Amino acid sequence: MIINKFFKSNQFVFDLFLEGKIASLYTSKVSNALTKKTIHTINSFGITPIKRVFIAKDIPEYLNIKLNNQNTLKARKVNQYKGYLVNLLNYATVEDYLKENLSRRNRKNLFSKQRKLERNHKITNKVYFGNIDKSSFESIFNSFYDLLKKRFQEKKAHNRYLASWESLKTLAYKSILEKDASLHIIFDNGTPITITLNFHRSDVVFSHIQTYDTNYTSYNMGDISMLNHLKWCFENGISIFDLAIGKSDYKDKWCNYEYDFFYHIHYNNKSVISKIIAKIVFWELKILKSLRDRNIIGNLINFDKILYLIKKC
Rank of each mutant, 00 (worst) to 15 (best):
M1H: 03
M1S: 13
I3G: 02
F7W: 09
K8S: 14
F12R: 07
F17Q: 08
F17V: 02
F17L: 09
K21W: 02
A23D: 15
S24E: 11
S28E: 15
K29Y: 01
V30K: 05
N32T: 10
I39N: 01
T41A: 09
S44W: 04
F45K: 14
G46S: 14
R52H: 12
A56F: 00
P60M: 04
E61F: 03
N64T: 09
K66Y: 07
L67K: 12
N71A: 10
K77L: 11
N79E: 05
Y81M: 06
K82W: 08
V86E: 06
N90V: 07
N90F: 07
E95M: 05
D96F: 01
L98N: 10
L102Y: 09
S112K: 15
L117Y: 11
N120W: 07
H121G: 08
K122D: 15
F129E: 06
G130N: 08
D133S: 11
S136Y: 00
S143C: 14
F144H: 08
L148G: 01
E154V: 13
N159W: 04
R160S: 13
R160K: 13
Y161V: 06
Y161G: 10
A163S: 12
S164V: 13
W165I: 11
E166H: 10
S175G: 03
D180I: 00
A181M: 08
S182L: 14
I185Q: 03
G190Q: 05
P192I: 11
T194L: 13
F199V: 03
H200A: 10
H200M: 05
R201N: 14
S202I: 06
S207V: 15
H208V: 01
H208W: 10
I209M: 13
Q210V: 09
Y216S: 04
Y216N: 06
Y219T: 04
G222R: 07
D223K: 09
D223W: 01
S225A: 15
L227C: 01
L230G: 07
C233F: 09
N236I: 00
I240Y: 00
I240C: 02
F241I: 00
L243G: 00
I245K: 15
S248N: 01
D249C: 07
K251E: 05
D252A: 13
D252K: 12
W254Y: 11
W254H: 12
C255P: 10
Y259E: 03
N268C: 11
S274F: 04
K275T: 11
I276T: 08
I276R: 08
V281K: 00
W283P: 00
E284R: 07
L285H: 04
S290T: 14
R292M: 10
R292T: 01
L300E: 10
L300S: 12
K305F: 01
